[in-house]
Design a protein around this nucleic acid. Structure first.
Length: 471
RNA sequence: GUCCCCAUCGUCUAGCUGGCCCAGGACGCCGGCCUCUCACGCCGGUAGCGGGGGUUCAAAUCCCCCUGGGGACGCCA
């Protein structure tokens, strides 16, 4: 067990989207790859916007992805006393001060600075005024007046910014509550976090947080900032821009490990390898090969990845998932009438053909329904169930019926000997039989499909076609 | 406006200590093979170092400028 501690710290103002999930994944992998701990902290200090629904949604998504955290979930809002304690210490040690400038005053300062072509910032006029708690204002941090703040980013490398770019950020609001930047520093320190991996949009915060660590005499953790995920138009992925909740991907039928694998390749690489098991990932992950440039989310590649995982997935699991989907779609009562028992035999035939679970459920349909509910594709019927074809079906039906043991091999033997006798091409028979049995021109192998479907259902379907599809 | 970051096929990326790269893999797309259809699989093809200057015998790789994109500048996180 190393002393590596990482964390994921979402603010519960909405669902966990794909970008957040990836950040969480990288942090999780960083911890796991070093035998360390991965902590979860909910940053709910904004009471206005934080909701229990969002917290639940985030937790649910983390669970679905299998990104388990060590220990209890931390709630930032529950640590306000500790935050305030640190703020008081900072004031006492002269690293922070009270300020009662009005919002309007500060806005004016910023506007002025902006107009003068400088970076908008508070000018620190209350720094040496020696105000106390009775001033009714806020507490600000005394940002160093000269020099630069620098650190080595785990993904971007050496980074530095001149302190002139920073201003005296607020530590405690006028309502007495601690602000984000202060709370994060205190929490990360108290939780023993050694490596902070977060989104690119936090780089500026890093430069503001490091001086706080230093003022407290605390060890500064390592920081790494991963680039954003972009939409197809190369704009930042937002809720408007297809930044879906990770749970939406579950609804669409994607396996969590496929989503995870897709996500990890979005910004991280291990040579040319595309598919990784979770074990490989925890063994191979390094921040060294995290990309420093933003990447575009590509649903097509996710689909491909998903297909890879569908092929290798356990049949029992797929059976359970497909059953769930069908029960959800048609209702439990209706689902009971379906021949769900056939699923474990049917699914292996469908696996190489399905992109995801919903797809698999859809394709399972032809095995589940009774002939009366089987949908026949109109153009397929027109094209292949011609009078000649139906005559063939009618002729072969008794022969199929007479097969002693209904197996893939015996079905194939029966059909092949039939066409040999007729001196026909196998294709001439295959498509009509396929359409008769499955309703469409696309299906798994004919013999295996018929074998799984069973003699009775197969024959019923063939007879129906002969009788009902007369022109 | 100011500061920071980024820049290889349409997309994800390998390339990081310069020569093995007239740039490799994957998705997609196109063609073929397999074949009872569709998939899977296999084979082949398409397509890229944003632009301009340097440094060097040699640059996708190092430096500078430009351009383009992104992010940040809150008593939000």
């Amino acid at each position: 067990m190393s002393d590596t501690v990482t964390r994921f710290a979402p603010s519960p103002t909405g669902f966990l989207h794909i970008g957040g999930a990836r950040t969480a994944l990288f942090s999780w992998l960083l911890a796991k790859s070093q035998g360390g701990k991965f902590l979860l902290r909910i940053e709910d200090t904004d009471r206005e916007r934080s909701t229990q629904e969002a917290i639940d949604a985030i937790l649910e998504a983390m669970t679905w992805l299998g990104l388990d955290h060590d220990g209890e979930v931390y709630y930032q809002s529950q640590r306000a006393d500790r935050h305030n304690e640190v703020i008081d210490q900072l004031v006492e040690s002269g690293h922070a001060y009270w300020c009662n400038c009005s919002k309007e005053d500060v806005d004016a300062m910023r506007d002025k600075a902006r107009a003068a072509g400088r970076k908008p910032k508070y000018d620190g006029r209350c720094r040496e005024r020696g105000l106390g708690p009775d001033c009714g204002g806020v507490v600000r941090f005394k940002t160093p007046l000269a020099g630069a703040v620098s650190y080595t980013d785990m993904v971007k490398g050496p980074s530095a910014v001149n302190v002139e770019e920073l201003d005296d950020l607020i530590l405690r609001r006028s309502d007495g509550g601690p602000t984000y930047n202060l709370a994060v520093v205190v929490d990360d320190h108290d939780m023993g976090v050694t490596q902070v991996l977060r989104g690119d949009d936090h780089v500026n915060n890093t430069f503001r947080q490091i001086p706080i660590y230093e003022a407290m005499g605390w060890q500064v953790p390592s920081f790494g900032h991963v680039p954003m995920i972009l939409g197809p138009d190369k704009k930042k992925l937002s809720k408007r821009h297809g930044a879906l909740s990770v749970m939406e991907y579950e609804k669409m039928g994607y396996l969590p490990e496929a989503v995870l694998n897709y996500l990890v390749r979005l910004g991280w690489s291990h040579g040319d390898q595309e598919v990784f098991t979770r074990e490989e990932l925890t063994r191979l992950f390094t921040t060294d090969t995290l990309s420093s440039s933003p990447s575009v989310f590509d649903l097509q590649k996710l689909e491909w990845m998903s297909g890879q995982y569908m092929q290798g997935a356990d049949v029992n699991r797929l059976t359970a998932e497909v059953t769930k989907i069908i029960e959800f779609e048609v209702g439990r009562d209706e689902a009971e009438k379906l021949n769900l028992k056939i699923l474990p035999k049917a699914i292996p035939l469908l696996q190489p053909r399905a992109k995801h679970l919903v797809d698999l459920a859809e394709q399972s349909r032809l095995f589940l329904v009774d002939v009366a509910f089987l949908m026949y594709d109109e153009t397929a019927v027109k094209k292949f169930l011609t009078p000649e074809a139906r005559a063939l079906l009618e002729e072969i039906a008794p022969q199929l019926e007479a097969i002693e043991e209904w197996t893939e091999a015996s079905i194939e033997a029966c059909l092949r000997s039939f066409i040999d006798e007729k001196e026909l091409k196998f294709k001439v028979l295959a498509q009509p039989v396929r359409v008769a049995v499955t309703g469409t021109t696309q299906s798994p192998g004919l013999f295996e499909t018929m074998a799984v479907l069973g003699r009775e259902q197969t024959m019923t379907r063939m007879r129906r076609v002969v009788e009902d599809f007369g022109l």
